[in-house]
């Protein structure tokens, strides 16, 4: 079973890796976007960490709902609403249970990813976060480590794609040959799950 501590570890691990990888995310965004993805995500997860400490939510659902709300209120850009919706929808789907199973988390995360796809209008293959998140959710049945691998492979697989959504889409064919920054940060979020589980 996954308790509230697991979800705190997940968020903390993601915040730490976003902090560590901020420059790389910004560099990727500089190639096909506007060079701020790393600093925006860093600011968002700092706010999430502070809010979790201050408000101390006690259930997995409440932790993700609060984290999502903080991201919406602090990140801006497209990433704020999209990551915020991902965590809020996932948290909402978990309800107010004190502990959840891995299967319940997988199902809730799928609802979160669907929320992202509806809000952003992106489908797999559009060179967005969805390209890391969908394979990760599909692989969750095989464990967190498998999901991490799937997300990382999904992010890498965005390199040859032409962007159809978001700011990179303005580049047309010139977006080909670059890894999508949103898919890359999504892979960090999924890697945080594996880290929290010790896998």
């Amino acid at each position: 079973m996954l308790d509230a501590d697991f979800f705190r570890r997940w968020v903390a691990a993601t915040a730490a890796s976003v902090d560590r990888e901020a420059e790389r995310l910004t560099a990727l965004d500089s190639a096909i976007g506007d060079a701020d993805h790393g600093s925006n995500m860093q600011r968002g997860f700092k706010a999430v960490t502070a809010a979790l400490e201050k408000e101390a939510p006690e259930t997995p659902g409440a932790i993700l709902m609060l984290a999502g709300r903080q991201l919406i209120s602090t990140v801006g850009g497209a990433s704020g609403p999209l990551y915020g919706t991902l965590l809020r929808r996932t948290g909402k789907a978990l309800g107010d249970a004190a502990e959840v199973t891995e299967a319940q988390l997988a199902e809730a995360l799928r609802a979160g990813v669907e929320g992202v796809m509806v809000l952003g209008g992106a489908a797999p293959g559009d060179k967005t976060m969805v390209d890391a998140l969908v394979p990760a959710v599909d692989a969750l049945g095989d464990g967190f480590a498998a999901a991490r691998t799937a997300a990382e492979e999904g992010a890498l697989a965005t390199v040859p794609l032409q962007a159809r959504k978001g700011r990179a889409s303005y580049l047309g064919e010139r977006s080909i040959g670059h890894q999508d920054p949103g898919a890359t940060s999504s892979a960090l979020l999924i890697a945080g799950l594996a880290e929290a589980s010790g896998e």
Partner: peptide, 11 residues
């Protein structure tokens, strides 16, 4: 005004 080149937040 949002952050540099970043849209403002809904609040």
């Amino acid at each position: 005004p949002g952050e540099v080149f970043t849209s403002p937040v809904p609040d």
